[in-house]
Design a protein around this nucleic acid. Structure first.
Lengths: 353, 353
DNA sequence: TAGCGTTGATTAAACGTTTAATCACACCTG
DNA sequence: CAGGTGTGATTAAACGTTTAATCAACGCTA
């Protein structure tokens, strides 16, 4: 009842062989007879041997752990990223250490440093908007936007925006309001630029930023969308599902029917977007592929670093930098209403099922 | 330009002292003159010394890493938990390794095992509904519900439910629909039981489970809430914000005004719940305190385990098992409508601002 | 039969840290 | 001045693994 956790020497002693032989048998590296190898492997899992990561890490210089830096774990956008990174990493034999940069400019660098201190073999970073990732001694993959200077791989936010815009044009919308949250976000700008790229012939395109509105109206204040509707804007294209949700409920509770009287679209296909009423038209990232590309590149860099020096090097590059997004058409988007409502229309009028 | 990562012996050689002295100076453990200690510390961070976790872990037997097992990282409920655990753990000098049990019954055990394999010092588990956590060789904290047998600490979901119910009663609601997702969830049952505990004198209380409705109607199908409204149910109390969102939008798009004609409440105070229209009345967990309690207990267990044996022991117990929840009253809840609408009412009628 | 290549196993060093044990030395005390 | 007490530093072992180097034994060939 002494050793609930045998180690290599325990095993070796018990079997009457050397430590190296046991190590070789379990890793399949050295030369040894097949029958002895099998005998050792059997004994190993009979005795419940589990290798010490610490010992291995010390010897090999690699910990088998990757770091994941997220701007704000609480933000509903990132869990899906975390989920996929974790899945792919686990498949590749890596553990994932999380770090939260809490959306603060300094916290990101500190988080990265702490991960390195913990001995991670590589880091995946979803950068806080507008920050630059410091050069580090271990390989780094950056997931931001395809046009961000040192980006490794990301969704093609621009093309995703273009898809939304084409969808809205096909539905006949002429006056479209683009709703962003923060103009300093690379991702949001890419999406908005993508939308604008397809809307040159539209009658009127405007962009509003929620942080600017909230700076005046206070946190969670109304966005005044009913007024935009009254001015004839029939489509409200948001840079993320939570904002679409905000728009959708604000319009609904102002008595404007979706999609009959106004169209609302989002981005990211968050879990609840499919079961609200009406279900939200949105754009989905191919996170499994993004995660796979990022981690493939990262793992390759880690392995090639093998016996090399470890001077800071630029972020790794993936086989493909931009992964297409997928437009998910649901019922929150519909044909532009025929009649242009007169300006100053009351919220109470014009109601259909 | 050779050594971007000096180690203790490098430092020692450079300073002309022994390795042990350097170690002592940096840890403040042994006996040495203050001025030498300072000289060593200065040199250490001038040369950019960063200790090897691997070496330390091997020697001390502790990795400084905790594992966090979540049922489904993609679920919007868990990120906040992850965020707070990460925060508290970082403050306590621990790293957090995440593991996803993907809501599968087997994956949870595998995830736990993998964490142990990676050498974590302790594990925080938010158990998948209805599973039992296996006994392990390292300390474990379980966050589920206060009444779950081996629970360490959690929000007082029952009392939270009671608060919602008292709020609804105070508003005059007599016919209340409780909306759950999955009856096998401990948390959801606790919340529902808590609500029921305060509703004995109410006229009519019913509970519906979304998984059962979807089993018939398909994923994301309507819940048929307008019909319940027509039967006179004026309050729809959901076990989580996403379900409340589903209910709220379903009612709104059926032309039922919130809160004038129906009240909707949720749980968990997710980020978007404050800025939808109307803002959602919900109940908030005190995650910072829960995380603190769980980690305090865990860290204490880790330290007391010091030189002790490492036979499996039951989950750690916290100073306080149930942390009160906080009712957040917003505009989605309002007084019960005066007139009881006649049965079979059409969705089109009875509309106010 | 001496020499050689191959096979199957062992020896020993190394990774970087912590820490108990030791040591040299100076200072006090009886 | 012998013996005891601190002080400030060093020595050396240990954690568990990987792996290059070594070695014994054996079957071949020359």
């Amino acid at each position: 009842m002494k050793p609930p956790r045998p180690n290599l020497s325990e095993l070796a002693r018990h079997l009457g062989v050397s430590i190296a032989t046991v190590s070789n048998a379990l890793s399949g590296k050295g030369r040894l007879s097949p029958e002895l190898a099998k005998r050792i492997r059997d004994a190993a899992d009979r005795m419940g041997y589990v290798p010490s990561q610490a010992g291995r890490a010390l010897r090999t210089g690699r910990s088998g752990v990757l770091g994941l830096v997220l701007p704000d774990i609480g933000n509903p956008l990132y869990p899906e990223i975390a989920q996929e990174i974790e899945r792919v990493a686990t498949n590749a034999g890596y553990g994932v250490l999380i770090a939260n940069s809490r959306d603060e400019i300094a916290a990101q660098d500190k988080a990265i440093f702490q991960l390195i201190e913990r001995g991670v073999d590589g880091i995946v970073i979803v950068p806080r908007r507008g920050t630059t990732v410091p050069a580090t001694a271990c390989p780094i993959a950056i997931i931001d936007t395809p046009t961000t200077p040192r980006n490794t791989v990301s969704a093609d936010h621009f093309e995703g925006g273009a898809q939304v815009a084409r969808h809205l044009r096909a539905l006949g919308h002429e006056k479209i309001l683009l709703i962003g949250d923060d103009p300093s976000s690379n991702v949001q700008n890419a999406r908005i630029n993508g939308m604008r790229s397809q809307l040159h012939e539209a009658k009127e395109i405007e962009t509003i930023w929620i942080v600017e509105i909230e700076a005046k109206g206070g946190k969670s204040c109304p966005l005044g969308l009913a007024a935009w509707r009254a001015r004839g804007f029939s489509a409200f294209a948001c840079v993320s599902d939570p904002h679409a949700l905000r728009a959708l409920t604000e319009l609904q509770s102002a008595g404007i029917a979706i999609p009959a009287e106004a169209t609302v679209t989002g981005f990211d296909n968050l879990q609840w977007s499919s079961f609200i009423s009406p279900p939200l038209t949105t754009v989905k990232m191919n996170m499994p592929e993004i995660a796979t590309l990022a981690l493939d590149a990262l793992v390759e860099a880690i392995q090639s670093r093998e016996a090399s020096d470890d001077t800071p090097s630029p972020p790794v590059t993936a086989r493909k930098a931009a992964v297409p997004m997928e437009l998910v058409i649901r019922r929150s988007s519909g044909p532009a209403p025929k009649e242009q409502p007169a300006a100053g229309i009351s919220q109470e009028e014009s109601k259909h099922a």
